[in-house]
Design a protein around this nucleic acid. Structure first.
Lengths: 351, 351
DNA sequence: AAGATCCAGTCATACGTATTACGCCCAGGG
DNA sequence: CCCTGGGCGTAATACGTATGACTGGATCTT
């Protein structure tokens, strides 16, 4: 629908037999005590009849706002962030906001300042996913909500034993309950009888991976006879295959591999098969995230589902609240353990 | 970077010692014969010094434009469209355009009119992917470019034998060379010695899938002794597994399964394994698209790589050209056959 | 009854830009 | 010497909205 020919508030005013100001007052919702209910009703009727939609450009100019928020994500090609964007954009659109995306440049680990380029458009707020709050750099002046960035994003925040943040000063956050998710995996595996567990960890400096490692280590340490080995890799199949291979070839081979990501689990499958190990009878494997890949693998992958689209939606809701002057409470979205076919009790005599 | 405090063209004018009009003239590039080169230079210097960025809201209001384009895609959760968006948004941002996304509603196959909701914001143009031009419905009045929609999108267009469109009236298009890609797959398989080929086709009414089916059928028909069977499914693993199973259980079992999508190929793997067939020694399998999944599967999948991000970028380039009054020529982006480990010569005595 | 208060709206204005119409100055032509 | 015209730039304006200042009449207060 192009812009030309669209009815303006002046057209609505003419139709309703009032002035443009009145239309603006009524449709802006600030007419209590200024316009009679009857007039307001007739204005709304006229607007409806003409299909009036306010001109955002004019509104933005007048209000000094852009009704645009910036979504900062590491990348959009990874299967995880598409849904995050979708959820955020859906909520934003419902409130007349647009979303522009800025992705982490390929030459990451850049200077001390923010590695993000300044967006061409001015923006009202920032939704930043999967990064430390310091990374915002010069953007810290702009209202922001951090997603999947952990309680450290809150200045002075502290974390209770259960992993739920108890202090909510500073930047609002929306996180996944990854620690709980990892505990669920650990519980599932130990419940099956596993004691020697290998962790194929993502060598990525993000809160979510630190939290996963910490939760798993704690869970295994608390288990009598529990023993954890660890190897790190990039989040791609070949790197993951190597890392998993190192664990499988090491002394005291683990009976289960806990992977930080579904894609890493795919690499673990390959390492296992290359060594003639069957999943799950010889080796249990778990993933994390539950992306499309999880059920495409064979056997289908036991993993933790993270509601990525919900993360985007909740984050945008919080940001809009913040922009409206609110003080959104931090939220934690629980992950859900999805048990499929990649986990089983360890072979007799090897556990 | 928030809006408040940003320098305006008036500030630049003051800094350069000229009027606001002159600044606008110079920075708008239409100053030939109206402003002296010296003055123009000093204006540009002042703008640079102050870090001036024009206020898009004001510009949009003045010009009656929005500098926003609508990207219509079936979904953003499928791994294929993330990159399309990325490519489109990158090019758009470089020209000061934003991109809003509209996805096909879940209750697809709706009324005769376009199933897309009207966007909240007014838009300047449309980039529509993977749909028939008729689907645009009431949006046809808006300048649009069709992606991955086939030559049918061009009114009165015709297609030469090689699959390259020769007429370019009507809506500009950017397509993949899927027919060539499918021919490459067919050539690869028949070169290995396969004669009985099964096609696990996506039951999706999109040009790209019709083109794939047509090209494969023609290629097999042209082959002495070639025999093609066919089964259709939705683009998900379980549906694909069933469809592939029907072909494998049928008479005269094929030695190779050509799948319309990498995800479908994952289903074919499962059908094969469920029947004790090894890929590739007992059964060759090919995919299409080359998404992340292709190398996560085991064996790694022979497939055709489609440059999705490039599709978005080229499409946006064409749309911006169109909006600037140009008449962009149709483009076809070639697919590339990626031979991996899921294809081999048929077992002796079964070919 | 006369001023004060309130109701129900309207007027005027500013946001920052692009553009049209106009003005000043100097050189050149008749 | 006056008129013309080109070169260089400015004043004025409109885009559509939101909102503070204002107004005419009705109601209330004492």
């Amino acid at each position: 629908m192009s812009l030309v020919g669209r009815p303006t508030s002046k057209d609505v005013a003419h139709e309703a037999g009032v002035s443009q100001s009145t239309v603006s007052l009524v449709l802006g919702g600030k007419w209590r005590g200024r316009v009679s209910p009857a007039t307001a009703h007739s204005v709304r009727g006229a607007a409806e009849r003409l299909g009036y939609r306010p001109n955002q450009a004019a509104r933005n100019l007048r209000l000094g706002t852009t009704r645009t928020v910036l979504l900062m994500v590491p990348t959009l090609t990874a299967p995880f962030f598409g849904p995050v964007y979708t959820g955020a954009a859906r909520v934003a659109a419902r409130h007349g906001f647009g979303v522009v995306v800025s992705t982490w440049p390929d030459d990451a680990a850049g200077p001390a300042d923010s590695p993000f380029a300044a967006p061409d458009e001015a923006i009202d707020g920032i939704l930043a996913s999967s990064m430390a709050v310091e990374t915002l750099g010069r953007f810290r002046e702009t209202p922001a909500v951090m997603l999947d960035s952990g309680p450290a994003a809150r200045s002075g925040g502290s974390v209770a034993a259960a992993g739920v943040p108890t202090v909510d000063f500073g930047v609002p956050t929306v996180d996944f309950g990854v620690a709980d998710g990892m505990r669920a995996i650990a519980g599932h595996l130990t419940g099956l009888g596993h004691r020697r567990i290998g962790h194929v960890a993502a060598a990525v400096d993000q809160w979510t991976f630190h939290a996963r490692a910490g939760a798993l280590a704690a869970a295994v340490a608390a288990l009598p006879g529990g023993r954890l080995t660890r190897s790190t890799c990039a989040i791609d199949v070949t790197s993951a295959k190597e890392a998993a291979g190192r664990l499988l070839d090491g002394p005291d081979r683990p009976t289960a591999l806990v992977c930080d990501d579904d894609l890493i689990a795919a690499g673990a499958y390959k390492a296992a098969r290359a060594r003639g190990l069957d999943v799950p009878s010889d080796l249990s494997v778990t993933g994390f995230d539950d992306v499309l890949l999880a059920i495409a693998l064979e056997p289908e992958l036991t993993t933790v589902r993270l509601p990525a689209e919900e993360l985007g939606a909740q984050g945008m809701t919080a940001l809009l609240d913040l922009l409206a002057g609110g003080r959104p409470a931090p939220r934690v979205l629980p992950g859900e353990l999805i048990v499929r076919d990649s986990t089983a009790a360890p072979a007799a005599g090897t556990g």
